[in-house]
């Protein structure tokens, strides 16, 4: 174990992590108003409905915000620096945080097209992104 933080699998998040274990990045969908959002609660942030579904995304998106971290926030990340921390806007219109892997962090920038890949992290497959095309 690396000592890096590991997400918790619980009733709200289980379907999401079941998806990533299958190589699928999923989003919550609202069955009442068609909103799409991340999995972190049991209701729709647009209309408040608790009638929710889940669907697979294309796994593709664009970097909207980025940084390259040179100082590790804790010991577990000491071997990782410098690493790219980004926000990705999925093609489905939802934003999420990730690291950009499989490339020189200095090459990461706003507008970069990326695709999902998965990192084994404790009990979950953690979504990460790498440059696409």
């Amino acid at each position: 174990m690396s000592g890096k933080l590991v997400p918790e699998i619980n009733d709200v998040t289980r379907e999401y992590w079941e998806g990533t274990a299958l190589g699928e990045l999923r989003l919550r969908t609202c069955l009442s108003c068609d909103a799409k959002f991340r999995f972190n609660h049991g209701w729709c942030p647009q209309c408040g409905s608790a009638e929710l579904g889940m669907e697979a995304t294309s796994g593709k998106g664009t970097v909207t915000n980025y940084t390259v971290i040179h100082v590790p926030p804790y010991e577990a990340y000491a071997a990782e620096v410098p690493y790219a921390l980004v926000l990705v806007e999925l093609d489905e219109g939802v934003r999420m945080m990730a690291n950009i892997v499989d490339c020189d962090p200095a090459s990461v920038g706003i507008g970069m097209r990326v695709e999902v890949t998965f990192e084994e992290r404790g009990p979950v497959m953690l979504p990460q992104f790498r440059p696409s095309n």
């Binding site: 971290i69 100082v71 590790p72 926030p73 945080m97 992290r121 953690l126």
Partner: peptide
């Protein structure tokens, strides 16, 4: 805790996302 912290968040790095 599940969707941000595992990526190695760091106060200067979070402000840096805004700055970028």
């Amino acid at each position: 805790p599940d969707l941000e912290a595992p990526y190695g968040t760091f106060i200067p790095g979070l402000y840096a996302l805004i700055a970028s």
